[in-house]
Every structure is written in C-alpha cells, then in structure tokens.
Design a protein around this nucleic acid. Structure first.
Lengths: 329, 329
DNA sequence: TTGTAGGCGTTATCAC
DNA sequence: GTGATAACGCCTACAA
C-alpha cells in the first residue's frame, strides 16, 4: 500500500505530469500571475494528484528565506512562557508567518544549541524567551537574522531588540505589600540563577533595606521538600518566590507539612500565570502582560525585516495582584 | 559594528581562508577521517574565525535528510504534553537527533498546518502528540517520513506507529473507584471533543451501566464558570474530568462557589500531571507514563529509519492514583 | 504566456 | 590526502 520510504515528488514531476516546464510550474504553484488560467489549473491538479509538497530546504536555499520564525524558550512547563508563545504565535499568524518552537530544557548550552538549529534552518527571525542565552550566541544570531529577546538582559547588545518588564520594580512592589500587611521576616526563595531571578532578588532587597530590615535569600534545588520546609520553619513570616511555579511548590510543601498560608506565612508568586488561580489559597502574584510581550516580539522581527536597524527596548510595567495567599487577620 | 543583514559565510569562504578545496573543508568540518591533522586544524580555525554555521537547507537538500525530528502537539499549556515532550527530547538527544516543536493551538487545521511545515522542512520523522490530526494528513506524512502518533487513534493507518494508553480502561478504573467510595450520581465532564476524550467517556459509561446506574455527560466551553457550577449543583456526587486541566478548573470553581471537594463531590482527573499534586485537595488522577511514551515514539522513528515497515502498536496500562480529592467519610 | 539556463551551499563520487 | 565536478529541488533573470 503505502510507500514507507517514498521519495517526495519534486516540482519537476509535477511539471512533467502537467506537460509544462518546471519554471512555469513553480510560478503557478506560488500563485504568481502571468500563467494562463487553464495551465495553472492543470498544474495544480497534477500537484494534488502527486501529493506534492514544496521542499522548504530547496526553497530557502534558492530564496535565502523561509517564511518561518523560530521561538526559542527554556521551559515549556512554565505557563509564563506559554503565554508569551501564545501572543507571538497569534501575531505571527496574522502576519502570514509560520512558527516553530525550540525547547532548551533549562540549560544555557541547550538554549544555544536550539538557537544554532534555528540559524541552520535559516529562519527569518528568532524570538528568544529567556535570559539564559549566552551573549555571544545572541550577537552572532542577530548578525544573521532579526532577534528579539523577551526577557531581561543586563546589557542588551545593540544588534537585537529586547522586550522586558521591570523585574526589580515588580519585586519591590510585592515586597512592600508584604511589609504593609505586617511581615517583618521576609525571604526571597528562587529555584533559578538567571538574571531575571537576580533582578527580582534585588527588588526585594531594596524594599527591605529601605525600612531597615534584613533579607533572607535562598536558592533551592528541584524536588527538595526538606530544604523548603527548613526555610519555612526558620522564622520567616513572608515569602516572595521567583515565580509562580516555585510559589506553588512552596505552597504544596507548606500544606503537606502543616504550615498555614497565609496564616503562618504570607506567600507571593511572580508572573501571574493560570497556576496562581487554581491553587488554594489563590496566589498573590506580579502580573506581566505575557501575550502582549509575545506579540511585540514578532512586531520587532517584522520591523527589522523591513529595514529598521536601531534597537528597540520595550519595557512593560508589572502590576501586583493581591489574592488569598497574603490575606491577613 | 554588527552586520544587520549580514550574509552568512559559506563553506567556500572557509575553504578559501584555509587554503583548501571546499570538499576537503566539508569533510573536515563533518569530522570525517581522511584529512591530515594539520589541515583539519587550519580548517576549523578558519571556520571559527568566520563564525561559520552550516546551512542546513543546503545540507538537507544535498543529503536528503536533516537530523531533526519534529514534535507536533496541540497544547503546550497542558502538562500532559510537556511530559511526553520531555521524554521524546531526552531519547532524541541520546540518539544524536535534534528536535523542534510545532504547536497546533488546539485546532485540527492548525495541527495539519504544523505537520505540513515539518514535511516542508524535510524532518527525519514526526512525533504527533495529539489525536486531532486529520487521517489523510497523517497518512500523507507517513508516506514521506516516519510518523509516530502518541495518542489514541480509532483506526490507525498501517503506515504509522501508535503509542497510546487504554483510555477507556483508565476511565473505567477511575469510575469504579468513585462507585466504591459510595458515589451514585456520577458525571463525566470534558472540555474536548477528541477521540481521546470520547474513549474516556465510554470507559465511564461502561462502568456505570455495569452497576445499573445512569451517567451524566457534559461538555463545557472554556472560561464558563457558570456552566460548571450548574453541573456541580445538579445533584452529582462524583465527577470524572477528561484531564487534570479540566479537573483543576472544576476544583477552582467549586472552591470559589462554596462546594466542598471531596465532601460534597468527589473529583477525579486524568493524566496525573504535576497539577494534580499542587492543588488542594490533591487530585486523584489516572496516570499515564508520559515520558516513557515520548521515548518510545522516538525509538519508533529510529526503527523506521532503520528499515522497519510493520506498524507498532504500543499500549501502556494506565493506573489510578488515589489522593485527597476522593477521600470520603 | 512559456521555456532555458544558471545559481543557492552542501554532499558524494571520482579521479589525481 | 586532496581536489574537480555533478547532483539535490527550487527560484529567477532572460530569451523566445
């Protein structure tokens, strides 16, 4: 029946079947004008009968572009990224661009490899949703194709666009909220060493030192419930997590080990993902407009393709959303 | 500074810089033997200095394969898929294959488009993690490259491999558990019309009819809290959701509207994703070995590449994990 | 309106 | 060990 290892039909076979030259077939298939209606019809019929699909390798080799933009991110399990991707995909579709995703599984070398793959695929632009990508890799990529980074970069290269929100500011607002509800022993707990996480840590510190208190800062590994419990029992009364994922883990551990949130400890997440609303108590969290940021990234890619060369620095304001995990009294 | 629209250097320029022919450069860069050590070194240096990256379009055009396998799925926001992807990526890496992800955003045409893109990209195989892909599209794809579907297909084409778990069986087990803890008015609530969801529905029905009771079945749209509340207040005492995502939504609505789980209603999810453990009460759920299924998919692709032609049908047994959302008395 | 003839950057097959 | 040279499948002048 089927042809397990069937070679894909080429445009030459389509042309032969339609009784025309391959150039004419190419024009017809691309929908260019300057092909007789009847001929065009024959060509399309032939293509359909053969199950012809364009060979994008050949096309992008000949044209130098692919009509595809790559989205590279380092954790598809984190709903924050999901939101950005959704925005980027929507915008791309509206602009007639297709998208593929490269998944970096959380490590810098992995991310770099994914960016390389996109480069090799000769995509028409790359959206990097991560602050983990090595600077050289980004710069190199930006030399070959438009690059937009949706994340905080300490010193973003001139050659690429950056879409970010002010992490320090958001973390500061969250911390001031904790102080306002009466917390005096506040901890920042992160599972990440990214510059994003670091910026949030700085925000917390700023707010705390402003009122003359002391900050406790912890980095915890994955699946380390004991470590988390130790932190929760160290006398803290307020915790800011580096993101909602970490916050929900903390919440789970607290529940499993009999620590009451928000009674014993007030807890704040970051990113305001859907996770924040499905847990109980619902998480107070810092919102970033993920979808809007994703859309903006694609706009940047488009603008660059149209010739813009000066770098874009789009900052979005984070806003605190107060929910049950910080209700007191 | 940077070359915004810089053409990427080609192997010819590398060869020229190293003072050798392009064929020799090609061999050296690919790490083939039969190149003098000193020459090889010179070539690598030249490539590094130029920032050379292979043009994968040209390579796959010349070779007829790309070393990349495509993973296509229809909801990156669903942790079930995340698990399968993680397994597939791990296995692929171990086999020296690279992966890219196509995201179908939940609709069949979208999924089809993503599969088309993979075909055009001439990937070496496609893992489709969805039961939504139109049959013709799958068959066509399977004719050109190995295809493994990680999902339940009603009548899987001979030309492709299928990795699935027995949804009806899992749903039946979950329902029997609900019956065992005393539920008498059981509802199946789904947000999907996929054959996977339908199979789970059949499982519930089987179990319920076996004891002479009646099943209530509901399909709810996204963001429709009112509808969910109506169902919860219709006199049911046990609910099986089509997956954990739906179950956590139900749990949230119940909490927000003052319905006690498991007190008033016992609730069961499906897929046993990380979500099941972070909510409170933790969700009883039906486990599928996502990672193992993802790995198996890549194995299938590999085997097909090595010449296997008879279809693989891998079935994994689902197992019920009982947690707080179904504790009674 | 249609066809001819390169060329895109690699790889692969031969000779040397 | 090394270097010509012909594919690979498509696009794009240019010519008919």
């Amino acid at each position: 029946m089927s042809t397990p290892a069937g070679r894909a039909p080429t445009i030459i076979e389509v042309a032969a079947r339609a009784g025309v030259s391959k150039s004419l077939a190419s024009r017809a298939l691309r929908g260019e004008r300057g092909v007789a209606d009847e001929t065009r019809r024959r060509i399309h019929v032939a293509a359909a009968e053969l199950g012809y699909r364009i060979n994008s390798a050949a096309r992008s080799l000949a044209r130098g572009q692919s009509g595809i933009v790559g989205i590279v991110l380092n954790d598809i399990g984190n709903p924050h990224f999901t939101g950005v991707v959704a925005g980027a995909e929507a915008e791309a579709r509206e602009r007639g661009l297709r998208t593929i995703i490269g998944h970096g599984a959380g490590s810098a070398p992995d991310l770099a490899r994914q960016i390389e793959t996109m480069l090799e695929l000769r995509v028409d632009g790359i959206v990097v949703v991560s602050s983990w990508a090595p600077r050289e890799v980004l710069e190199h990529a930006a030399q070959l194709t438009p690059v937009a980074v949706v994340a905080r970069l300490d010193e973003p290269p001139e050659s690429l666009d950056m879409i970010a929100s002010d992490d320090a500011h958001g973390a500061r607002a969250a911390t001031e909220h904790l102080l306002a509800i009466g917390c005096r022993h506040i901890a920042y707990v992160t599972r990440s060493t990214s510059v994003t996480s670091a910026a949030r840590g700085r925000g917390v510190r700023t707010a705390i030192e402003q009122v003359g208190l002391e900050l406790a800062e912890y980095r915890v590994g994955p699946e380390d419930d004991e470590e988390i419990e130790r932190i929760l029992r160290s006398g803290v009364d307020g915790v800011l997590a580096n993101n909602d994922l970490t916050a929900t883990e903390i919440l789970r551990v607290a529940r499993e080990r009999g620590i009451d949130v928000p009674g014993d400890i007030a807890l704040v997440g970051y990113d305001d993902t859907p996770l924040a609303r499905i847990v109980s108590p619902a998480l107070t969290s810092v919102n970033q407009p993920q979808r809007a940021m994703g859309r903006r990234a694609i706009e940047c890619i488009s603008e660059r393709r149209d010739g813009r060369t000066d770098p874009e620095r789009a900052w979005y304001e984070p806003t605190l959303l107060v929910r049950g995990s910080t209700f007191r009294r």
